[in-house]
């Protein structure tokens, strides 16, 4: 990637501005302050009650991880959705097409530079996340899984942004479309499942049961598959498993009803990560295809 001119140019321009160091400083400053207050609270509690509330360290881990996830999920599209359309607006895209640069080089240069920008932020906050390690309960495997999830979501959200940027001429329109699609993926799939669950619950509560029959639990059927595309569902599941033993506020378990032994539920995290990786790959390839200036024309 270092030899990709677009990537090199993006990193040169970025390293010149004060924006990135300021963002890193502000982001880590907030996290460090939160961690210090958290530790201060724990020590104060020990002094007064002689008891250590270990769960507060896990709360810190969950807080930092959630903040980083939201950052990746919602800042990545902002970085990528204007990247190609911005080149088009500056009239530099056609110049790049007349050089040896292929659409793939251009997309990869833009995408990796944006992903790198946010992963630097994640990496810089690792020391604060690692404070949790002092008291145990989260190990390197958990952290590794979280970082894999972050990387996939960065490419996923970034890929959607760059796809719209390749498709649309105006950065503003590309931005709106990217956030619209992301909102649909994140909120829409949940809403669909909640709606179907409620409908099923109404249906079940009106069922006439035979004597000895147990009232079944409501589920959303095949609609739960839609949540495989939802990175928030995956992240919630990972964090739920690591921090609260599987019970997260937005857990997907409730949508499975009595079908708790399902293979999909058992391997939800690897399956959803794999699905999102494949979708990211397809989206990025689509962006490369859309960027080709002579894609739809016959010779």
């Amino acid at each position: 990637m270092k030899s990709n001119p677009v990537y090199k140019r993006e990193t040169t321009v970025r390293s010149r501005s004060l924006r990135m160091p300021l963002i890193i400083f502000a982001f880590n400053g907030i996290l460090a302050l939160t961690a210090l207050l958290n530790m201060y609270q724990t020590v104060a509690q020990v002094r007064t009650t002689s008891m250590i509330q270990y769960s507060t360290f896990l709360d810190l881990y969950a807080f930092v991880a959630t903040l980083e996830f939201l950052l990746l999920m919602f800042i990545m599209p902002a970085l990528t959705s204007g990247s190609i359309s911005g080149e088009r607006e500056r009239q530099t895209l056609e110049l790049l097409f007349t050089t040896k640069m292929s659409p793939n080089d251009i997309i990869m240069g833009k995408l990796f530079s944006a992903v790198e920008q946010l992963l630097i932020l994640v990496a810089s906050s690792l020391p604060i996340v690692l404070l949790t390690f002092v008291y145990g309960s989260v190990d390197f495997r958990d952290l590794g899984l979280l970082l894999i999830c972050f990387t996939i979501v960065a490419f996923y959200a970034g890929g959607i942004g760059i796809l719209f940027s390749s498709l649309l001429r105006r950065s503003t329109f590309s931005n709106v479309c990217t956030y619209g699609v992301l909102l649909f993926i994140v909120v829409g799939t949940y809403m669909l499942n909640i709606f179907l669950l409620n409908m099923d619950q109404i249906y079940i509560s009106n069922m006439v049961l035979q004597p000895g029959m147990e009232r079944p639990m409501a589920d959303t059927g095949m609609a739960v598959w839609a949540l495989l595309f939802n990175p928030v569902a995956t992240f919630a599941e990972i964090l739920g498993n690591q921090v609260s033993g599987g019970a997260s506020i937005i857990s997907i378990r409730s949508f499975f009803g009595s079908n708790t032994g399902s293979v999909l539920l058992k391997y939800w995290i690897p399956i959803s990560l794999a699905v999102q990786s494949v979708v990211s790959f397809v989206i990025i390839r689509c962006a490369v295809y859309c960027l080709n200036p002579v894609k739809n024309e016959k010779k």
Binding site: R9, T12, V13, R16, R90, Q91, T92, E94, L95, T98
Partner: peptide, 14 residues
């Protein structure tokens, strides 16, 4: 070939 379009195509921050 080398191409000079009617609009320059500049990266102002370089």
């Amino acid at each position: 070939f080398g191409y000079v379009p009617d609009e320059f195509g500049m990266y102002d921050n370089l």
